[in-house]
Amino acid sequence: MKLSIVYLTLLILTYVSCQSAQTKHPLPKLGHTIIEQGDTIYHTIGQFNLLSQDSVQIGNSDLSGYIYVSDFFFMNCPTICPIVMKQMLRLYKKYEANPSVKLVSHTLDPKRDTPSALKQYANNLEIDHTKWLFLTGDKEHIYDIKDDYFIAAVEDSEAPGGITHSGQIILVDKKGHVRSFAEGTDPMKVEHLMEDIDQLLKEYESN
């Protein structure tokens, strides 16, 4: 008799916990939040001005109104970059037909990764150059921007390729808020990121 009560409680608990998992909360706005005079100010990607693979200047206004996934890499990186690039390619293929989604890859090695080199790189990936931007520019500026995407990167002469950096893929919404991220070397984590992208797209559809 007692045992059956325990089982019943467990069953109800499981049911209730499954229920709450089904109702999805909006994706959080990640990063440092400030409350100023009653207004909540969320972390936003700061001002940037970079050059694309087509040598076109790209700033915040060019990406506002799009949701985009962003990563930091460099062409001569022999370790994690190809793996992350493969996952970015997966994201590209999944959202190729969706005009609200863009991809933005920043180089951490602007000296070697000039716009024309990045153009060749992008050509080899056989992608649409307006949908997937490869950005380069002033080195200090890029290293400042990476902080807004919560990316760690340091020059390290002993590291393969000369730079140690993290391989996260960051999801940014139409207003420049960071909404999700995934370890770009892990296909399963990128799978979850895709679910978050779908959810964010739905949020915009219903508003």
């Binding site: 190809p82 690039m85 990936l125």
Partner: peptide
């Protein structure tokens, strides 16, 4: 062994 397009 699937590589990445024409890059790798």
């Amino acid at each position: 062994g699937s590589g990445v397009k024409n890059l790798y």
